[in-house]
Design a protein around this nucleic acid. Structure first.
Lengths: 307, 307
DNA sequence: TCGATCCATAGGAGCAGCTTATTGATGGGC
DNA sequence: GCCCATCAATAAGCTGCTCCTATGGATCGA
């Protein structure tokens, strides 16, 4: 007789605490009265104490029963909420998403995030900024669920989906000869020292970034290597050289630097969302899908499950 | 197929989250592997999401499963604690006890309470002080579980058990002729105005309290009626008259009043614990029993129930 | 004293959950 | 490259628990 407690016991117990009448409580539970008597008795042997004091004329809660009632009630409520929550997580409506992104994409990530949060207000997004290598490492190791990188190369284990494109622009010191106009031809920068991130930080990104110069027949030589765009444009403003940068990292510019549109065949920088290949988790799917237009993603009336 | 969730599902789910292997988890649960597969599948249809991603080589938690695990764990732990608590309440080892007592018994109630709290540290005692009528009313109405009264008369619906006895003493102003000694004969107070509570506040208590005077052949006439002993002895100290009081309410006395032992046949005031007749709740029994000597009331190793 | 009410008990039936046996898929070893 | 080991899913039958109906027994009002 070492039966274990089941939720049935709690459900029956609570019905009886409310009705204080075996017949009515049983009716409400859609069972016959003897079944309820049995189960309540069983619960009492499990707990080891009398929960109801009954005569043939009345049913009253004992102190132990009175103490147990709110706890049982709360337990069932909690469980219902937990099931609901698990369901939402499973459908990608709630949960936590780790997003790793390169610092130079902060503006675009922010825009995307605002849209995603509107669609999935219950999802907690954890952000991690870093260099391209950090982002990819986080993705590989599972530290991040989604990575956001710029001009990445294709890989077997990673899916890329385009998040945004933006043109490259030139950034020159305000005392540069070309700084008086709004536009510049790449070849006009041939003699200037070039400030840029090291190629090792992202070969494909580096090559894309310098494409306008190579299109103009310039032999690309980086005079000053910096890791952060913020540092690069600051150095430009200080008159140490010029750079070619994706538009979004040049707004705003520090005083002393000036942005110029590039003449010639347009080259774009592409920002990708990167996910592990085969990662079909709903939240990941929802995040990458948030850039595409679409209706509200969550059902209007979340179904409440009986417990 | 609208089966309801049961604790069995949670127990099986948790075992599987820990083992991440159907065979081992089933073994630990003392069931066969297919039974576990069935129940997990059933749980998943109830929740509406996949909780484990399984291949024939591996079993992994999904995000929904990972989100549900700590909640399920906590639910079972909570339930175990709740059952434990209900058991303790049922055995009178925990819970709440409402004790109504007369103000003049404060000292004795305090002593009794200290002993009771030592024995039942988990019981929360709620105290209500008032006059004898308040105490009895609270007991009748169920507002109080135990009442503590002084020199009460027997009643059909209330059980009395003696808590303490104490002698009566006289209290006189320090300028009273008898105040020079330590003792006094009751008849020496015959001419003094008597300060006491009204007889209507408790006829039996009043009669007991005035017994020493009546033994001395004095016709008892209360000159000044007060409800609280504190007020009575203050009036005595102010020289308005004398009184006869149970010892405990005369310690300490305000300046200006002096306590004298009474000569003659001793009369005692009895303090009773009053309970509703037939109230066999363990806490009530334990409280009334706390005055009698006895070992520790709670088992040394409370049994932990499996859930 | 009789009847009504209501909880407990008794005995039987149906089904949920368990069992063993087997299938099917995956991955490692020779 | 084939075979075997591993492991979860499926199939089919059995067991035991929960529920049922019928009845007993206690209490209260008329």
């Amino acid at each position: 007789m070492d039966r274990r407690i089941e939720l049935r016991h709690l459900r029956y117990f609570l019905a009886l605490t409310e009705e204080l009448h075996f017949g009515r409580a049983a009716h409400r539970l859609h069972i016959a009265q003897p079944a309820l008597s049995q189960q309540i008795r069983q619960l009492e042997t499990i707990v080891g104490v009398e929960l109801f004091r009954r005569t043939s004329r009345s049913v009253r809660l004992t102190q132990a029963g009175a103490a147990f009632q709110p706890r049982a009630r709360s337990l069932l409520d909690t469980l219902a909420a937990d099931l609901d929550e698990a369901g939402r997580v499973g459908r990608g409506e709630a949960g936590r998403l780790d997003v790793a992104f390169i610092t130079s994409a902060t503006t675009i990530v922010g825009e995307h995030l605002r849209e995603f949060s509107r669609r999935r207000p219950e999802v907690q997004v954890k952000l991690h900024d870093g260099f391209t290598t950090d982002v990819l490492t986080a993705l590989e190791r599972g530290t991040a669920d989604v990575g956001i990188v710029r001009d990445a190369e294709q890989r077997d284990d990673i899916d890329l989906s385009l998040l945004a494109s933006e043109r490259f622009v030139a950034v020159v010191p305000t005392d540069h000869p070309a700084a008086e106009g709004d536009r510049v031809e790449a070849r006009a920068l041939a003699a200037d020292p070039l400030i840029l991130f090291p190629r090792s930080a992202g070969p494909k990104a580096f090559d894309t970034n310098t494409q306008p110069l190579r299109n103009a027949g310039i032999d690309v030589q980086v005079t000053q290597e910096c890791s952060h765009w913020h540092t690069i444009v600051t150095f430009v403003a200080a008159g140490l050289g010029v750079t070619i940068a994706p538009y979004s990292v040049t707004a705003p510019l520090p005083p002393g630097a000036r942005r110029l549109e590039l003449d010639g065949p347009p080259t774009v920088s592409q920002i990708f969302m990167a996910t592990r290949r085969g990662d079909d988790r709903p939240l990941v799917q929802a995040f990458t899908a948030a850039s595409t237009a679409g209706g509200p993603a969550r059902p209007l009336a979340p179904s409440r499950r009986p417990v």
